[in-house]
Amino acid sequence: MNYKKYSEALKDKYGEKVYKIPINLPISCPNRDGKIGSGGCIFCGEIGTGFEAQSASLSVAEQLHKNIEIIAPKYHANKFIAYFQNYTNTYMALDVFEKVLNEACIENVVGLSISTRPDCITAPYLDVLKSVGLKKKVDIEIELGLQSININTLEILNRGHGLSEYIEAVMCIKTYGFTICTHLIGNLPWDTERDFYEGAKLMNVLGVDAVKIHSLYILKNTVLGIWYENDAFDMITPDAYIDRVIQFLRILKPTVVVQRLFGRAPEEDTLFCNWDMSWRKLQNQLEARMDQHGYRQGDLYTTEKIVSGGQ
């Protein structure tokens, strides 16, 4: 295996196949409701990222049971991670947060994954997560959306936070011992290749446990969509993207779990996604290229430190 795949890491940890089940809650984001900004990130649609989830009108337990009924026989999975996916899941009333976490701890759920923003990480929410994790005997993972380490790109994306907030969030979460997964977009038009590779180095330095690399997809009825239709930026080729991601993986520590390498979005809602190719086909091409050249995750990673000669 030329990189540390999430599915294999889960199987190693739990002894069998584990499937991540998305949960959709009727919540918002401080970058949408006016607290720090309005309109959200330029790539974010009205449904957020939870397009594979059940209706938010269903309870957490109902969403899990409905998806498990479909997924368990199809993928032969008996253990599950409840994935609080859509919008900012540490941006709700604290008592509601605790309630939905407990509701997600149904039979055969072995972990909770919480998707949120770096500027929405605070001790009260982490304390609740720790309490629920210990009480229900489930593992806790926090997914942080970063997308880019370039602060100028973050401003263009209207993220509403900078790099320092992300670093502070990681350092805070690590004191609780939770698993940290970071989202990065590999082909943002305003990032250089070096920006992306420095992202891998930052993951190494901070000791992040997992990464989700997305190829940029462009949703209809978004600011980014309008820019795309007006030819306001250029997209790199799929070959260039594959080469870029391979280099990222080669720099990344071999112990970091790779949860995803390509974006996924429903065709009917997108203007651009994966160059009109299947993400699976692109991933197969990436893996074949790594095999062809003998590349492996972390083969460019070095633990050498700069040592001062002064006394």
Results as ranks from 00 to 15, higher is better:
F272D: 04
Q63F: 12
L101T: 01
I151M: 13
Y241W: 14
E143T: 00
L300R: 13
G15Y: 15
T179K: 02
L252M: 10
G15W: 15
G48H: 06
F80C: 03
E8Y: 15
N86G: 03
S308R: 12
D139S: 12
G199Y: 03
D127V: 00
E155V: 15
C181R: 05
C105G: 07
I36C: 07
Y6I: 08
V205S: 14
N274K: 09
T270P: 07
A56P: 08
K79I: 04
K79Q: 12
F51P: 04
I71C: 01
G160M: 11
Q147V: 08
I306G: 00
F248W: 15
E103Y: 01
C105R: 05
C44Y: 00
I213P: 01
T192S: 13
H76D: 11
Y197T: 15
L271T: 14
T116H: 05
E98D: 09
I106Y: 01
I70Y: 06
L282W: 09
N31Y: 00
K136W: 07
V170D: 08
E98N: 06
A123R: 14
L154S: 03
I142L: 03
V205Q: 13
Q285K: 06
G310E: 12
I242T: 15
I36N: 08
N31D: 04
L129N: 06
Y197N: 03
Y87N: 06
F80G: 08
D276Q: 14
E8I: 13
D239P: 01
R159G: 01
F43H: 01
L224C: 00
G15H: 11
L202N: 02
R32S: 02
I251M: 14
S131W: 00
K130W: 09
D139E: 13
V100A: 05
Q247M: 07
I68A: 12
A232S: 14
Y6R: 02
C29K: 05
P73K: 12
E229M: 09
M203V: 15
T192C: 08
E69Y: 06
P73C: 06
N230H: 06
P189V: 00
R260H: 05
L154V: 12
G225C: 05
V109I: 15
A53N: 04
E304M: 06
T303N: 11
K220T: 01
I81V: 14
Q63P: 04
K35F: 01
P238F: 09
V223E: 13
L188E: 07
K253F: 00
N230R: 02
P22E: 07
Y301T: 02
E46P: 04
E287H: 07
L184Y: 08
W227G: 15
G294K: 02
V110G: 13
C29M: 08
P124Q: 04
G48M: 04
V18S: 05
K220W: 01
L271P: 09
H214E: 08
